[in-house]
Design a protein around this nucleic acid. Structure first.
Lengths: 109, 109
DNA sequence: GCAGTTACCTCGTAACGCTTGGTACCAGTA
DNA sequence: TACTGGTACCAAGCGTTACGAGGTAACTGC
């Protein structure tokens, strides 16, 4: 798959929130989860800013946790505000999806 | 619907191409088509740059056409390269859609 | 003439993904 | 001890995009 960059704008934040909703976890793990999900080219330089943004927006709780195999991890948990934001994300996604489908089907007149 | 800006990145170019595939038309009309399709907040300042981009990329042919109700129109037609680009867009969209659905369903482990 | 509509374009801003680079902790090995 | 590689985090800067604000120009009807 060629360059997804532009289409990924906004999407990754939703994806990260969804992953966090499923289970609390940390940045490095999220990168691997996204890679495993098919977003092969998503790297740390992309995910960490997203996590910082989510933290700044108050969508997540952060907990420092010691690791056995490396430096301490920052474990993120989606809170109530985060769940609301995620809900909003899915609504927007749904909205765009259906409009786009409409346009695809009848070119829109 | 609140702010779609970020999620629209890349999407609008595809939407414009799809509209052009359905019928050759001009900028002002495309704005109205998008508005009619539900993308209410999309304005000229968004669409004209997209058309210039498509032209620069060689995805469209342009024809000046006199109007009965105002200044001359620049009528855009999707060419072969444009159709290929549109095809690529739909593939990328499909790709992201399914991956996102996966993540939504099983949080991705 | 003048206003209103149609139609085009440009500029500046903000957001986001991504690359690059850097820091630091830990385990294993030579 | 020194080196290597994996884990884990963060910051700075670039390019692309959507979008609001503003400007220009053609045509119609009053």
């Amino acid at each position: 798959m060629d360059d997804l960059t532009e289409l990924l704008k906004g999407v990754l934040e939703g994806a990260v929130m969804q992953i966090l909703r499923h289970r609390s976890t940390y940045g490095y793990e999220i990168v691997r989860a996204l890679n495993g999900a098919g977003f092969a080219s998503v790297s740390e330089g992309t995910v960490y800013p997203i996590l910082l943004r989510l933290e700044k927006k108050g969508c997540v709780e952060v907990m420092q946790q010691r690791s056995e195999v490396g430096p301490p991890r920052k474990v993120y948990t989606l809170n109530t505000a985060g769940e609301a934001a995620l809900e909003g994300f899915w609504q927007r996604w749904e909205f765009i999806s259906t409009r786009l489908q409409d346009i695809k089907e009848n070119g829109n007149d």
